[in-house]
């Protein structure tokens, strides 16, 4: 009994006052699950538009932005009232997007339309449409805000778009069906995952040249089950976490050596990843097991599984 109390006290002590809130977009039941990270559980479910996928949050934390793909719109959801308060003119079938580092504009990949739509979040107006490859998917903005990267799943390229001119300046071929693009926090590299190629391509954003390619051999799994999706770097850029889809694992990559340090077993079909602002936890959406795995980043251990809505796709953590 004493030990139990001690353990409970230790647990209580180890729970910092972070009070973070995470949000997952649930593709199959048209909802957002709101997770209280103190209690590590879903505390609320918000009904939203059809086929919710890409999800992010405004810099001030006031609004969630959500791609309601089948409604051809982006919904703005008030994070205090949990009500849909407005929409952005996204163009057809918005899937993923990225906010500029300054908080505005928003870059949206229109999967059905081979273009990137640029939206001013304040005026809620389209300010530009940039032609890109077939089935645009991943969007990333460089930390200095000068370069936007878009991947195209059937063209198999990472397209580099200049912020000021809104023109594509270069395109780099990568392996089959590129999904996510993520810059290191220091901006030195952009990493692009290839779902069918089974690899992550490391690209120098200055020269647009491929510098490394990372593979993810997992003992006992067929190659086609290893499908890299979302990529996230720790704040110090020392580690990268790569979701491997139906491999049900997140790979931990040492960014100095480009070697996989470890595979973390999470839920089924792991898709998107998000860190808590203090970098203590990494959250993963697991589309087929309808849950979120919580990874303790320092220990590199999965510590919790939180049930959410059906087929969770994207995840974002409030900065507050």
């Amino acid at each position: 009994m004493k030990r139990l109390i001690a353990a409970t006290l230790a647990l209580a002590a180890s729970q910092p006052a972070h009070a973070f809130t995470a949000y997952t977009s649930n593709e199959r039941d048209n909802t957002i699950s709101v997770i209280d990270l103190d209690q590590m559980k879903t505390v609320r479910t918000i009904p939203v538009g059809q086929r919710p996928r890409g999800i992010t949050i405004t810099k001030d934390g006031k609004y969630l932005l959500l791609c309601a793909s089948d409604d051809d719109t982006i919904q703005m959801i008030d994070t205090t009232t949990f009500k849909v308060t407005g929409t952005l003119p996204s163009g057809p079938d918005p899937e993923l997007f990225a906010l500029h580092v300054s908080g505005n504009p928003l870059y949206v990949s229109n999967e059905n339309d081979a273009r990137v739509t640029v939206i001013d979040v304040n005026t809620r107006k389209v300010v530009a449409e940039i032609p890109t490859g077939v089935e645009p998917e991943g969007m990333a903005v460089s930390p200095d805000g000068q370069t936007i990267v878009n991947t195209s799943e059937t063209t198999n390229m990472a397209h580099f778009i200049d912020y000021a001119s809104r023109k594509p300046v270069a395109s780099t071929l990568v392996d089959a069906r590129p999904r996510d693009a993520t810059f290191r926090h220091d901006g030195a590299e952009v990493w692009v995952s290839s779902e069918l190629g089974g690899t992550v391509s490391v690209i120098d954003p200055k020269t647009h040249q491929l510098t490394h390619k990372i593979a993810f051999p997992v003992q006992g799994l067929r190659g086609d089950q290893i499908q890299p999706e979302d990529i996230q770097f720790t704040h110090d850029d020392k580690l990268a976490f790569v979701a491997l889809g139906p491999a049900n694992r997140v790979a931990v990559v040492d960014t100095a050596t480009y070697q996989v340090k470890q595979y973390l077993l999470v839920g089924q079909r792991v898709w998107h990843l998000a860190f808590t602002p203090d970098s203590k936890y990494l959250l993963t959406t697991n589309g087929l097991s309808n849950d979120v795995s919580v990874v303790d980043v320092a220990a590199l251990k999965v510590v919790k599984s939180i049930p959410v809505g059906r087929m969770p796709w994207g995840v974002v953590v409030s900065p507050k």
Binding site: A170, G197, T199
Partner: peptide, 16 residues
């Protein structure tokens, strides 16, 4: 798939 693009080809893949 690991060798989908050989090293010798990498140079020509970035296109201004």
């Amino acid at each position: 798939r690991r060798t989908l693009i050989s090293r010798s080809m990498i140079a020509l893949l970035a296109v201004p």
